[in-house]
Structures are given as structure tokens and as C-alpha cells.
Deep mutational scan, measured.
Amino acid sequence: MTEYKLVVVGAGGVGKSALTIQLIQNHFVDEYDPTIEDSYRKQVVIDGETCLLDILDTAGQEEYSAMRDQYMRTGEGFLCVFAINNTKSFEDIHHYREQIKRVKDSEDVPMVLVGNKCDLPSRTVDTKQAQDLARSYGIPFIETSAKTRQGVDDAFYTLVREIRKHKEKMSKDGKKKKKKSKTKCVIM
């Protein structure tokens, strides 16, 4: 069974824990209790493949930012979460993405942009803004509501699919490099 290491990042209060708990335990946590770091595991079937999701729910508070490099190193894919009623959390996505790329030393890291709290009427981040940002990053965008469960499975499952595509691409690139290195030079 394939294991996928997913990391949920975003500013404090955007609903990272609520999304994760909704996926794992099928219930909505409405009281806000700032996370330092929590880890969850769940076995699911995605596109006919049974897999184990190892999900790291991270601290959004700035005082825990020193811990970010460590979990970013171990993560295979990242859910970059903002709240649709919090423009600052949307603007912060850029910083999370840049930090992930720096730590992973790669421009090509599996990510999904997630606009959470889409059940709320007080939207300050337009869907088109988020779609445009995701398009500019070359990553999928999904709106979710941890409260109603809308888009929750889709967000995590899409990230797994992005990781699969990335692994497939990397193995193809690896095979191309191996083929090239088999060419021999004969000096007579």
C-alpha cells in the first residue's frame, strides 16, 4: 500500500485542523484551538488504489514558523489553505509557496490551493482571484467548507493525484537520464 505524506499549511484560523478532522473523523470542530502540530493517518481508496494518507496539520501562528522547514522537508505534497473571508490569509499563500519551493529546492512541488469556509456569506476573496492565482502557479484550486464537508475529500484526493503525477514524471525523467548515460565512448 502506497503511503502519501501530505502537509496542510496556511495562516492561523483558516480551518486547516477543521478540514483535516472532517476528512479523518467526519465531524466539524467549530471551536478554535490553535494547533502546534498534529499528525493523522487514514486509509482510503483513490482511483481504485488503496493508500495510506499521513497528514500533518501544522501551526499557522507566526511564533511556530521555525518548525516549518522541518515538516516541509518531509512532506510530499501540500494543501495551501486560505479562508475566503480573510484576504490576508490569501496573500500569505505566496509566502508559504515560496518557502516550500526553497526548502524542497524545487520549482515543481505537488500543491493544491484550497479556499476554505465557502459556506460563509462574508467572502472577501473572489473565486476568480483564487483561480487566477492557482493557474499562475500551475496547481489545482478547490473551494471547501469544513463545516458542510463540501470539497473536503476532493481537496485531499486531488493532492494525492498531483503527487502521483509528480512521481510518474520524475521516474520518466530518471529513465531518460539513465538511457543517456548508457551511451559509451570508444577510443581507438
Rank of each mutant, 00 (worst) to 15 (best):
L23R: 15
A11K: 06
A11S: 09
G48N: 11
V7I: 14
I36C: 06
V14R: 05
G15P: 01
G13N: 13
F28W: 12
A11F: 14
K16F: 02
T50A: 11
I21K: 04
F28Y: 11
V14S: 12
L6Q: 02
D33I: 05
L19F: 12
I24T: 12
V7M: 10
E31K: 05
Y4C: 13
E63D: 14
D47M: 04
S17T: 07
L53R: 03
E49I: 05
L53S: 07
A11D: 11
Y4F: 15
E3N: 05
Y40W: 05
D57V: 02
C51M: 13
G13A: 12
H27E: 15
E31D: 12
K16H: 01
Q25V: 09
G12V: 06
D57M: 02
L23C: 12
E3W: 03
T2E: 14
V8P: 01
I55H: 04
G10W: 00
K16L: 01
Q22P: 03
D38W: 00
E3S: 07
V7Q: 07
L19P: 00
Q43E: 13
Q22A: 07
Q25L: 09
G60P: 08
F28A: 03
L6T: 05
Q25Y: 06
Y4S: 12
Y32E: 05
I46A: 11
K16W: 00
A11Y: 06
D33Q: 06
V9E: 02
Q43N: 12
V29T: 10
L6Y: 05
Q22T: 08
T35S: 03
I24V: 09
T2Y: 08
K16G: 05
Q61Y: 08
D30A: 12
I46N: 11
Q43G: 12
Q22V: 03
V29H: 10
E37D: 15
V8I: 14
D57N: 00
P34T: 06
D38F: 00
C51R: 09
L6W: 04
I55S: 07
V29S: 10
G60N: 04
V44N: 13
G13E: 14
V8L: 09
V8T: 05
L23G: 15
V29W: 14
I46D: 09
V7R: 04
P34E: 06
A18G: 13
V8W: 02
V9A: 07
D57A: 01
V45E: 13
T20Y: 01
V9I: 13
V14C: 12
T2W: 06
L6P: 04
I24C: 08
V29M: 14
E62R: 07
L56E: 15
V44G: 12
Q43V: 09
L6V: 11
V8D: 01
S17I: 02
Q25P: 03
I21R: 06
D30K: 12
T35I: 01
V29L: 11
V44D: 11
G12L: 06
V14E: 13
N26I: 04
E63M: 05
H27Y: 15
I24F: 15
E49L: 04
T58V: 08
V8Q: 03
G48T: 09
D38N: 02
F28E: 02
Y32N: 05
S39V: 15
K5V: 02
P34M: 07
P34V: 05
T50L: 09
D47C: 05
R41Q: 05
P34H: 04
V29K: 03
R41V: 09
Y64E: 15
Q61S: 14
I36D: 01
Q43T: 13
T58F: 04
D38L: 00
A59T: 10
E63F: 04
V45C: 14
D54E: 13
V14I: 14
D30Q: 11
G48C: 04
G48R: 10
L53W: 07
G10D: 01
L19K: 13
V7E: 03
V44Y: 10
D33F: 04
E49K: 13
E31H: 07
G15K: 00
G12Q: 08
D57I: 01
V45S: 14
G13W: 08
D47P: 07
A59Y: 03
V44F: 15
D30T: 12
Q61C: 13
Q61T: 14
A18I: 05
E37T: 02
E49W: 05
F28P: 03
S39K: 06
I46V: 12
T35R: 01
F28R: 03
D30M: 09
E31R: 04
Q22W: 10
G12I: 05
E63A: 06
L19S: 15
I46T: 11
E31I: 07
V14M: 13
Y40K: 00
L23M: 14
V45H: 09
T50H: 13
A18F: 01
A59N: 10
L52K: 09
K42G: 07
S17V: 00
Y4R: 15
A59P: 15
D57S: 01
R41T: 12
G13D: 14
E63G: 13
K5N: 14
E62T: 10
A18N: 11
Y32M: 13
P34S: 06
A59R: 06
T58C: 11
S39Q: 07
G10I: 01
V29Q: 09
V29F: 13
T50N: 13
E37S: 03
A59K: 04
Y32S: 04
R41L: 06
Y64H: 15
I24E: 07
E62K: 08
L52T: 15
G15S: 00
I46S: 12
G12T: 09
K16M: 03
H27I: 13
L52S: 14
I46F: 09
E31S: 07
D54Y: 04
Y40E: 00
V9N: 03
N26Y: 07
R41C: 08
Q61K: 13
V29Y: 14
D30L: 08
Y4P: 15
G13F: 12
V45Q: 14
V45W: 07
L53F: 11
E62D: 13
A11I: 14
L23S: 15
Q43S: 13
A11Q: 08
E3H: 08
C51N: 11
V45Y: 08
Q22R: 13
S17K: 01
E31C: 07
L6H: 02
V8N: 02
L23F: 12
D57F: 00
I46C: 13
V7P: 01
Q22E: 13
V8F: 03
D33N: 05
Y40H: 02
I55V: 12
V44P: 11
E37C: 03
L52D: 15
L56W: 14
A18W: 03
G60K: 04
P34Q: 06
L19T: 15
K16S: 07
S39H: 03
V9H: 05
Q43H: 11
A18L: 02
Q22N: 14
L6S: 02
H27K: 12
L23W: 11
T35P: 01
L53A: 10
V7Y: 08
